[in-house]
Amino acid sequence: MFQYCAEPKTLEGLIWLSCYLTNEKHQLLYGSLGTVLLLMAIVAPVAMLFGFGGAVAARSHLLPVRLFGKGYTSMVRGIPDIIFFMFVPIALDQLFELIRHKIKCPDWTDAIWQGSDFVVCAEAKLPLSTSPQYVHEIYGFSLAVLAFSIVFGAFAANVLYGAMQAVPRAQLETAEAYGMTRRQAFRRVLVPQMWVFALPGLSNLWMILIKATPLLFLLGVEDIVYWAKELGGSKTSQFAYPHPDWRLFYFMALLVYYLSMTRLSEIVLGRLSQRLSRGQATFAGEQQRKAAR
């Protein structure tokens, strides 16, 4: 990074530190902060979509759909999320390859499970073994995103289902009395009103998501926990910057990072909730009205 960093072993003190903290490996650490943010930016909307689907399914009049919805919303209550994170990506990976295998290689006669090997034809591999490295990286990251989205979708489905139930029944009955179909009443009356009820749950979910991101490490994505462990471990003089075990400092830094992330979110979400309550016929809206008078 800096000119004077060419010979790290000759440096001392703050200059050494400035070189150490800006070497390529640390830049990968700083880059991985972006990975975490990217994960959250993608998972949040996708999980909302899954959650909306799950909540609608749980309210369905068709029994199989309702059972599916109920099952999806309740799975996260019974089973620790870590188990999903360990299981879902491998299972999805094999499922995708199996489907592609059935489509692309219908003439394949060998067994797919040979002992412990999972063998599909070369054209069905995901990603193709000939694809460049970045495709593999993106695929790995996408599986992690999908696993997160499925788990957080189930959480979101819980919140949205609760919010839909919280919209007063009379509102829907009135809509139907006006001659709206169920579908119209759902779209025009229920959905616009449920967000106020859903916001506390959803903000809470966002905080949960922030705190769940270190689990990316368990999914094998090179996130900040991976780099903190890697950089913090003691280094012999084989490395340009030898040092003893510094993991404590690195994890301290991670703690500060996470605390500031959650604090910042708290402030932003607090403002948002105030904005949304303005003019609403709820307790908070009423308080704002009184305060303004």
């Binding site: 990506p89 491998i90 990976d93 490295q133 990286e137 790995g140 999914l219 094998g220 994505v221 090179e222």
Partner: peptide
């Protein structure tokens, strides 16, 4: 999946092998 990926492609391409297997 559990895959930690490093973007370090080792280019061992030698002359005369245009369609090398990755």
């Amino acid at each position: 999946m559990n895959q930690l990926i490093l973007s370090t492609a080792a280019l061992a391409l030698t002359a005369g092998m245009a369609m090398a297997e990755t």
